[in-house]
Amino acid sequence: MDDMKKIMFLMRQAPHGGIYSYEGLETILIFAAFEQDLSMVFVGDGVFALVKGQDTTGIGIKGYIKTYGVLEDYGVEHMYVDKASMEARGLTTDDFAVPVEVVDAATISALMEEQHAVIPY
């Protein structure tokens, strides 16, 4: 599609402690129906949302880690993780439930500049 616009979702919040990352995910699923060029970038505590092995039964909150696995089918082309944020939290790509692209801050910075809009959650 010629008029596809680039929309980036900037995910900076950890899961469960607040609803931001979950409701952010709901937004992305809706945007997917508009067939645009979508990407997600996980920065800061946002990287914790992707950690595998999350079991929320004990806190009584619905988990949603599995939803990240279907995003590719929804047309989310890229899931970027900020390298420094990941490393600062003692994580490697092996800790994530889905395949991601680990990139440095300068790469994210350049990607941001290409966007029609950046939506933060």
Binding site: E26, F34, A117
Partner: peptide, 20 residues
């Protein structure tokens, strides 16, 4: 209304300005 109203607005605007 639905989140589609956000998508529609963002795609049809020059700028998205977020406050949180």
């Amino acid at each position: 209304s639905g989140l589609g109203q956000l998508a529609d607005a963002v795609l049809g605007s020059d700028r998205l300005v977020t406050f949180g």
